[in-house]
């Protein structure tokens, strides 16, 4: 069966750290490193487990600020 692999690009300066993408990611790919903040002082999300991403776009669909861009390929 073809497996999908995805990647998420985070627009760090737009992210407000609401964490809705983290709870809605079925693979647990995203996480928020509370110690790192952007220019506005918000802690932003990053791909903690990039290998697990399937590119389902759930994170980008729930993101209120349009932070996430999703890429996907078949391997």
């Amino acid at each position: 069966m073809a497996k999908m692999k995805g990647a998420v690009v985070v627009d760090v300066e737009r992210c407000k750290g609401c964490e809705l993408c983290i709870v809605n990611c079925p693979q647990g790919v995203l996480a928020n490193l509370k110690s790192q903040v952007n220019a506005k002082g918000y802690p932003y999300v990053y791909m903690k487990n990039p290998d697990d991403c399937t590119g389902c776009t759930n994170c980008a669909v729930v993101c209120p600020d349009g932070v996430l861009t999703v890429y996907r390929i078949k391997v």
Partner: peptide, 17 residues
């Protein structure tokens, strides 16, 4: 496979309108 190999314009599935 590295994340950089996936992040290419032809693989784009979702971006901000």
């Amino acid at each position: 496979m590295d994340v950089k190999d996936i992040i290419k314009p032809e693989n784009l599935v979702y971006e901000r309108t």
